[in-house]
Design a protein around this nucleic acid. Structure first.
Lengths: 307, 307
DNA sequence: TCCGAATTATACTACCTGTATAAAAATATA
DNA sequence: TATATTTTTATACAGGTAGTATAATTCGGA
């Protein structure tokens, strides 16, 4: 991205943090970042679009850090989840994102409102999927409710805690306290077998990447299994067999159980499969490539880079 | 209140509900309510002050209805609490108070922000005191945390529920679901013996009527007991004894356990006590009157009419 | 009927967003 | 180096908003 544009984004973000979004006029931004009006409107069609640019720039970074915390860890380990939450809460506080959210909901800018709505829903979806990691498929029917309640519970705890003490180190205490409640909450709701929001709602609110789509999932597994059979049938060399099976399993693992599947790795793996000496499974490999391409396409459409 | 002014308040509230606070210009209000600019600024110093007037008008009514639900009921009955919540949530939805809250936090109007802050804290205090009614003194150390968490949990449940279905009848389901979680939450936190926010914080955030002040309470009970002893000692007629004891107990009950003590009733009771034929307890009665006067004074200062 | 208070209409200041445009500066190209 | 092209600036402008000020008008009560 244009360095000058990034500079404007940073300066404007500083002003928004200090004075708030509404209270910062475009003229303020022009003065503070040292550009002219013409340039501003060349970069951004409005103050709202500038704010969206700020969000996007930060979320991308945050999302990466959040996913990095999972690398090499067991996704069901709740300590990893706590770390991820802390990371996000500290970032939220530093960047005043919550305050800016609320401010924005008041504006009459439909685009901005929509963006915020989507962002919140994405956050909910992330939490829901992490809950599935942590609390298991058996609790799935209750986990959307739990995610909704936990978000509110945590947010209020943080808000009032900030009112009480303005120290940063306390955030981890608040997160841990809240998560302690969460664990029992999940148990309790599952025990009572009560549901307020069916999990399909999430898909309705946020037509997502096909990861949540059962049809897609079953098709993906079908092809993977077909190929696995191919391998055991056609490769008699034990070393080759193992190598290709491992590649296949890596692809499966990366796509199904990684927060942000690494496209380049998967493409590389597909390439290696294609370059096998026997030249079997032409059809299956094409299907696999297609379904994975579709997956990444949807991921990007629904990901952080919408329009 | 001036009928014309009330008319402006109603019309403006309609506009705020339809278009939002920020999006409604003063000119819109002038046109819609049919007054001139001069008159507007005679009534309200700004649009913000008009909004505060809207809040006050509605809260007074809501508070009355909410307290009426308790009349003749056991305060520890959770069904009453559920009814009270439903009442408030339906009102919030109808009047779009939550949306208006959020909008307001973005404005740079310090007065308005302060008012909203106080209003939210009052709501929290109300919930805290109701939790004490319901879950008992033994759980008190955990009930502020529970109130904070429950507010967030309920709010989020309602918000996402509105996103899912826009029907009004569902509100009671959401409330009941949330309260079911609450009951177990209180048990669980007490069991774990974890506390995030000490209850003194509430007093610090919202220096309240002395009802929460232990010193005042003990003094109040001391005087009441002194007078009770007087009665049993000096009145030998069984009918008189019972009558004065009942008056005393009414005062105690009304002040200590009623959400909005009825000043006129208490003053009337005090008057009756003063007019007793024996003319004993002059000193004690004076003390009681003083402490009750102080109580009502603080109640009004901290009550709903803060400017 | 008349006085004074309430109300209106209107003009005015100061600020805001967003558009348009000509001049100046930076950059690329020959 | 000289010329062409793009980027950036400075500035004026239109249309909107909040709030102040003031003269004219209306209305209710003595």
């Amino acid at each position: 991205m244009n360095e000058r544009k990034q500079h404007v984004i940073n300066k404007a973000h500083q002003l928004f943090i200090e004075k708030g979004f509404q209270a910062t006029s475009i003229q303020d931004i022009l003065d503070y970042s040292g550009i002219s009006k013409g340039t501003f409107y060349k970069y951004f069609s409005s103050k709202s679009e500038l704010l969206i640019a700020i969000y996007k720039a930060n979320f991308k970074k945050l999302q990466k850090e959040r996913n990095d915390l999972l690398i090499g860890k067991n996704p069901s380990d709740i300590e990893v989840f706590i770390k991820q939450l802390e990371l996000q809460m500290i970032s939220n506080k530093k960047n005043k994102f919550v305050a800016l959210y609320e401010e924005v909901m008041s504006t009459n800018d439909a685009d901005l409102k929509h963006y915020i709505r989507i962002t919140r829903l994405r956050s909910l979806r992330w939490m829901f999927s992490r809950f599935i990691d942590i609390f298991g498929e058996k609790n799935k029917p209750y986990l959307l409710d739990c995610a909704i309640m936990f978000q509110g519970l945590l947010q209020n705890n943080l808000q009032y805690n900030r009112l009480a003490t303005d120290s940063n180190e306390k955030i981890s205490n608040v997160v841990r306290f809240s998560v302690n409640r969460l664990v029992k909450l999940v148990e309790e709701v599952a025990e009572a077998d009560e549901q307020l929001h069916p999990q399909e709602l999430l898909e309705k609110w946020l037509p997502g990447p096909q990861k949540n789509n059962h049809e897609w999932i079953s098709q993906f597994y079908k092809i993977i299994n077909l190929m696995r059979n191919c391998i055991t049938k056609h490769f008699h060399d034990k070393y080759d067999q193992e190598k290709y099976i491992e590649l296949l399993e890596f692809i499966q693992e990366e796509i199904m159980h990684t927060r942000a599947p690494r496209k380049f790795l998967i493409e590389s793996a597909l390439q290696t499969l294609q370059n096998n000496p026997l030249d079997i499974w032409k059809k299956e490999l094409l299907q696999l490539t297609q379904i994975i391409t579709a997956f990444f396409q949807q991921l990007e459409e629904n990901g952080e880079d919408e329009h």
